[in-house]
Design a protein around this nucleic acid. Structure first.
Length: 685
DNA sequence: TTCTGGACGCCA
DNA sequence: GGCGTCCAGAAG
């Protein structure tokens, strides 16, 4: 017993009468109760929400008796840590602590709801280790903020979630080699792993819903992650059709705190076993997980922009590996990462044979954009349409909607000097000048100031030209080339979900293409040089992915569906589109990454921050002997630098571990500045 | 942000 | 040699 448990002798004699008497009697009893530890498993292992890398480990606390029932593994608690009250999660209850010193008691059990499932706690550790980040940062992505009122709502009475009653239709998967086998394996309760190359025109939301249905029928759950909200809406609708209502739930960040937490709880409590959502849904605590799905894994929306920057595909793969459940990485395109999964044998290909692919794909034409090939029609010339593109668009418009994909949104999104062609910049803030609309003056894209009486600082010229034309301007020009045809624009802040089957021109930026009822009659891909020349490692892979996704919305060549790419026929990405051979392109891409030493063939870490901080980190890190460091190179203003470290894939774990340990040293030392560590970042200039 | 312990300095 | 103060480092 500590001294606090004894009656203070001076209190009874302090002359305060009644009040003092009450205190002397009541206080010792209260103190005894509150200090007594729980009768069993009196120690709680707690992960405290701390931003410091060197404190990324559990701490033990004493569970007071009155918290014995509410302090369950996975619940939120409040603990005293270094003089502050902080949030934390209980990992486990233990009979004793390995800590030598005295344990502090838990301050409070925030709620007895075990929001953090044991496998999600473990997944957070795996993800943090893979990305050289902290557990707490990952858990912040995985567990939505608590909403007390929602938590108190009476839970819907669902003892065991019923599997959908409709039989699973596996027939559509027969178009793919190993497709039917994949679904049957899920149905049997096995855990197949596949990279699926979806056919052009495929109703992929329906196919994914069928895979989910097969998994649910085996008594297990499924997590389906897609890039954006339009994809979520399509998959949501397909799941309702295939599974029936109430067997799946949509989890996205934009639901709002209450609804988000409500749905999260319904999953965590086991009432729903199929989750559809964007990247954060990769962490959904689905019970008895049988299948994880990542659709269109090349879309960079799958990359989380918050530390430690995990990629949804990698989270799902770690999860599938850890749990031994099924995995499906699918898309019209195949990423180099997908090709690697196939080459190591970790996953198997689910692809259609060449005959089926040829039958289902639209006919693809290439049109050069040289002056000689431009259409003679002056309106078509104005919109930079080669003769063939103009003819195919005109023919397509007789049969239905025609899609026009242009890389940039806006009107004239970039301006340059007419004479010397150097980019036009804002005299005030050096931002890029652009023309936001037909009737509007050029203005700065950053500060919005109109560029009145601009003159080129390079050559003194005073007129501007637009080397890049945006979607709205293209739509305007096309409207002139094809009078009497309605023109729609989808992109930027105004994205259309669907268009009907009537003839129309649909100008869209990549990823914003509406789905056409019955498929597009034709599609044109303009300004291909602009996408292909982007100074990004993935520019070519990304361009092909965008083409394949758009071309997949076009009718098959048997239905006279046609695609025209305006560009150079010799470019490998254009060849891959013509042949519709995403797998071969991905294999080639992977081989090139091997040769050049880029992910996923190797593991890369980028270190961004102040020069001093970055060099301290890299000097402290005990990097694997195979590590190769490149840089540091200056980045942007001030004294910011980027350093790149490269290791073979097999040393990726050691690389992340070394960087994490070095971050821990820096945080323990309270070294100034911060260093942003990214493992295999999506953007690699 | 608080606590602890080790280093160091001052005084006996 | 003993005790007080200061600072760094850890944090249950």
């Amino acid at each position: 017993m500590s001294s606090d448990d004894r009656v203070q002798p001076d209190q009874a004699a302090d002359g305060q009468g009644q009040l003092a008497l009450v205190r002397t009697r009541v206080r010792p009893i209260r103190t005894v109760t509150s200090r007594a530890p729980a009768p069993e498993l009196p120690v709680a292992q707690v992960m405290v929400d701390l931003p410091l890398a060197h404190l990324d480990r559990p701490f033990d606390y004493l569970v007071p008796e009155r918290m014995h029932d509410s302090c369950v593994p996975g619940c939120r608690v409040r603990v005293r840590f270094a003089g502050q009250d902080l949030d934390g999660f209980v990992l486990e209850r233990l009979s004793q602590s390995s800590h030598e010193g005295r344990l502090s008691p838990l301050r409070r059990v925030v709620s007895a709801e075990p929001v953090l499932a044991p496998d999600i706690a473990r997944l957070a550790r795996l993800v943090a280790d893979r990305y050289a980040g902290t557990w707490a940062d990952v858990v912040r992505l995985a567990v939505p903020p608590r909403h007390a009122r929602v938590e108190a709502e009476p839970a819907k009475q669902v003892a065991t979630p019923s599997a959908p009653t409709q039989p699973v239709d596996v027939a559509p998967w027969s178009e793919y080699q190993a497709g039917r086998a994949f679904l049957n394996a899920l149905y049997r309760g096995d855990s197949p792993r596949a990279v699926w190359t979806a056919l052009p025109g495929e109703n992929w939301p329906r196919r994914l819903a069928e895979a989910a249905a097969a998994t649910l029928a085996s008594g297990r759950g499924a997590v389906l992650v897609v890039p954006d909200h339009r994809d979520v809406a399509r998959l949501d609708a397909a799941c309702t059709e295939v599974l029936g209502a109430g067997h799946h739930v949509v989890l996205t960040a934009e639901l709002g705190p209450a609804e988000r937490y409500r749905r999260f709880l319904s999953v965590r409590r086991g009432a729903v076993r199929c989750v559809v959502g964007t990247r954060a849904a990769a962490f959904a605590p689905v019970h008895d997980l049988g299948l994880v799905v990542c659709w269109d894994d090349g879309d960079d929306l799958h990359a989380e922009p918050r530390a430690p920057y995990p990629h949804a595909r990698e989270v799902l793969l770690l999860r599938a590996h850890d749990r031994g459940c099924g995995a499906l990485i699918g898309g019209h395109a195949v990423t180099a990462e997908g090709a690697l999964l196939l080459s190591t044998g970790w996953a198997h290909p689910v692809v259609a044979d060449r005959t089926t692919v040829r039958r289902r794909a639209p006919r693809v034409w290439v049109a050069g954009d040289s002056v000689a090939e431009l259409a003679r029609d002056p309106a078509a010339r104005a919109v930079r349409l080669p003769h063939r593109a103009f003819e195919i668009a005109r023919a397509g418009l007789a049969r239905g909607p025609v899609l026009v994909q242009v890389p940039r949104a806006g009107y004239r999104p970039a301006l340059a000097c007419q004479d010397c062609r150097s980019p036009a910049r804002c005299p005030e803030c050096s931002g890029p000048l652009q023309q936001p609309g037909a009737a509007e003056q050029p203005a700065c894209g950053w500060c919005g100031r109109p560029a009145v009486s601009w003159s080129c600082p390079n050559c003194g010229g005073s007129t501007m030209r637009a080397p890049v034309v945006g979607a709205r301007r293209t739509a305007e020009e096309l409207g002139r080339a094809f009078p009497r045809v309605p023109v729609y624009v989808s992109g930027g802040s105004r994205v259309l979900d669907t268009v009907g089957s009537a003839p129309a021109l649909v100008v869209a930026t990549p990823g914003a293409e509406p789905v056409a009822d019955g498929g597009y009659a034709a599609a044109l891909f303009l300004d291909t040089w602009l996408s292909l020349a982007r100074p990004d490692l993935r520019a070519v892979e990304e361009t092909l992915r965008r083409w394949l996704n758009a071309a997949a919305l076009v009718r098959s060549h048997e239905d006279d569906g046609a695609v025209v790419v305006v560009g150079e026929a010799g470019v490998p990405a254009i060849q891959a589109l013509i042949r519709w051979s995403p797998s071969a392109f991905a294999e080639r891409e992977l081989a090139e990454r091997r040769a050049a030493g880029f992910p996923p063939a190797v593991r890369i870490a980028t270190l961004d921050g102040g020069r001093e901080a970055v060099s301290e980190l890299v000097d402290t890190a005990r990097l694997p002997s195979t590590a190769e460091t490149l840089g540091p190179v200056p980045r942007g203003e001030e004294d910011e630098v980027r350093l790149v470290i490269r290791t073979p894939r097999r040393d990726g774990g050691r690389l992340a571990e070394a960087l994490k340990a070095a971050q821990a040293v820096r945080s323990a030392r309270k070294s100034p500045g911060t260093v942003r560590v990214q493992i295999d970042p999506v953007m690699l200039g």
